[in-house]
């Protein structure tokens, strides 16, 4: 059976992934919308920055974040003046790191979905005197619905699968930064293979079910629309 600390790690992982997904829905949607609609020359550079975490090693991100959020880094000095203290080794530090790390997993599917909506429905909405904001919420968002689901599932799952960045800035605190992936790593390091097996199996089944649900849902949505 899973131990209390396993359940704690799983709950922490779920909470982290849930919060990160919620933040990225708010943050990623306008970015994706802008990327899908704009013809500005800096669409390319912005798109590249958003995609960076896809190719950047987690150690690079972890290293920069550790320095930036530390007492001598710009973020660290800001959080200290604001009275929040330092972010490494805290839950919210992990949230911020994960927001960066999972950004492309939210933005890219949304951007594709918005691009697929095209100009036409929005032009029609405009002729019916819908304001751009109105058209966005009543036309673009419902049409991009499957995109929102894909983006949210991928963001959630990717945050659950995070390891390298957490290892670098987490400090392995039970209930605070010791997520399931780190807990498994600890078990393996401590040669506690049977404990590692149990938690690893939970992660494997969870990941499979999430992806299965997503792929099972997709073809149906196609026939509906």
């Amino acid at each position: 059976m899973l131990t209390d600390s396993d359940l704690q790690a799983l709950w922490l992982t779920a909470r982290l992934a849930g919060i990160v997904t919620a933040i990225l829905l708010l943050l990623g949607t306008p970015i994706a919308w802008w990327l899908a609609r704009t013809k500005a020359w800096w669409k390319g550079p912005v798109g590249a920055v958003v995609a960076l975490p896809l190719v950047l090693p987690p150690s690079v991100l972890g290293f920069y974040l550790l320095l930036a959020m530390g007492p001598h880094g710009p973020v660290g000095q800001l959080t200290q003046t604001l009275g929040i203290g330092l972010l490494p080794f805290t839950f919210w530090g992990l949230v911020i790191a994960s927001v960066f790390y999972s950004l492309p997993f939210m933005v890219q599917p949304l951007q594709t979905a918005f691009e697929a909506v095209g100009d036409r429905p929005l032009e029609v909405a405009a002729t019916l005197r819908a304001s751009p904001l109105d058209a966005f919420f009543t036309v673009a968002v419902p049409l991009a619905g499957p995109g929102f689901l894909t983006a949210s599932v991928l963001t959630f799952a990717h945050t659950v699968g995070e390891f390298g960045v957490v290892l670098m800035i987490g400090g392995n605190l039970p209930g605070v930064t010791r997520v399931a992936s780190v807990q498994i790593y600890d078990y393996v390091e401590g040669l506690e293979y049977s404990e590692a097996h149990r938690l690893a199996a939970v992660m494997l089944i969870f990941s499979f079910l999430v992806l299965l649900a997503m792929y099972a849902w997709r073809p149906n949505s196609r026939t509906e629309t």
Binding site: L67, P71, H72, P88, F89, G171, N172, L173, Y185, E189
Partner: peptide
């Protein structure tokens, strides 16, 4: 107050960066 490094070098790195 404790934070845990994965190995002793990472522990030193937490201190070197001032995070501990």
């Amino acid at each position: 107050k404790l934070v845990y490094g994965e190995n002793i070098a990472q522990t030193a790195q937490f201190v070197l960066t001032g995070n501990a």
